[in-house]
Design a protein around this nucleic acid. Structure first.
Lengths: 200, 200
DNA sequence: AAACTCGGTTTCCGATAGTGAACAAGTCAT
DNA sequence: ATGACTTGTTCACTATCGGAAACCGAGTTT
């Protein structure tokens, strides 16, 4: 047993063979037909279906091409279109997950809900001078931001510094470098909501 | 037996290595860090990124687990890096587009920016009793909501009414029927951010 | 400038995925 | 029944994937 140094990274089952067989049978295809369509050998297909081997990614591509299915379809195991309807995740004021840094103190909101498309968090802006940032903050996706308390100066990569105060809001492409500094007596507080950077 | 000549099954590119590298660099991870997270060897990662090998599906799983990304994100092809970089849309307090109704008074924020993935708006909750709503409010997608001023009672289709006050926030599936009423002296004010209901 | 670090690539080799051929188990037709 | 055909599994072999370690700049440090 080779040790993979510390970290776990367990590979759960995710029985893709089973799923593949389902699809094949649902379409009343034989292994031979699937072989024709995908270019993979009958034997290989058999082994994949019985979870005897873990297919190469190119093999997976041949499968999704040849069978005209898409990944989600191949992965969604028992087809649970049940939907996570009616989920919700409450965060009382101040009770989010705190992540302090020298310049910002982030408080992640609604962090119990795993699969979500937006990431909301509240930030106390500790920074007082632009120079405190070693480099731009940037991340894929879009960001909406509203100042809840105090006044800030928003520095961005492409624009002049922009003064914002309580109630002002801004929507921007968060791949553009940005950085906030407080300019009021007290530290400013802002609410941000970011998109997850995936699906375009 | 339809197609009898699919033998070749052209292996189209779908440069996953490239995409993976993008993701890694975007997060400023080194190969070593990714190795720790995924349990894959540095060398293996390097080869995958340079399209020297086609990773096993288990390897792909380790990647998506370890990096907390999902398949679509990994596959979404060459990334539209062009992007409308550096867009932004400022809304000064109170200067959004107002849409009054008997129960709510919505103020759309950042409405100059057309193509965006989130819709932020501020709402003054005029309703005082649940009975004022003829039916549930519901819409595709997800919604994040934070109470800015006052106290409200949030009625939902599947849960007990939930009292929320200034600073509290909640994230929920907005397909679940919902309705807000003010229970404080003054009308309550809430900030909402919805996802656009398209991309699943 | 040698000595060290750090991030990435390349090398070598054991482990395993993918293939064609052989095999076992039906099914069908005579 | 017997032989011809089909379908899925197993075998033997080769191609290639995955990992440890060596290797290579590019900085830093001494």
């Amino acid at each position: 047993m080779r040790i993979a140094s510390g970290r776990k990274a367990f590979v759960e089952p995710l029985r893709l063979g089973e799923r593949l067989k389902e699809i094949r049978l649902a379409n009343q295809w034989t292994l031979e037909e699937v072989s024709q369509r995908t270019g993979l050998a009958r034997s290989t297909l058999s082994k994949i279906e019985n979870d005897q081997i873990s297919p190469t990614f190119t093999a997976v591509q041949k499968l999704i091409n040849g069978l005209a299915i898409d990944l989600p379809q191949l992965l969604s195991p028992p087809k649970p279109q049940t939907q996570t309807l009616g989920r919700r995740d409450l965060t009382r004021s101040g009770e989010g997950q705190h992540h302090p840094t020298p310049t910002y103190e982030h408080e992640l909101l609604s962090c119990q809900l795993a699969q979500k498309r937006m990431i909301p968090f509240k930030t106390i802006v500790r920074a007082r001078h632009f120079e405190e940032f070693s480099e731009w903050v940037r991340h894929d996706g879009e960001e909406f931001l509203m100042v809840l308390e105090g006044k800030i100066l928003m520095y961005t990569e492409y624009y002049e510094p922009l003064p914002l105060e309580s109630g002002d809001s801004i929507y921007f492409d968060s791949a553009m470098g940005h950085a906030l500094v407080s300019v009021s007596e007290e530290d400013a507080v802002v609410l941000s909501v970011c998109t997850r950077g995936d699906t375009v």
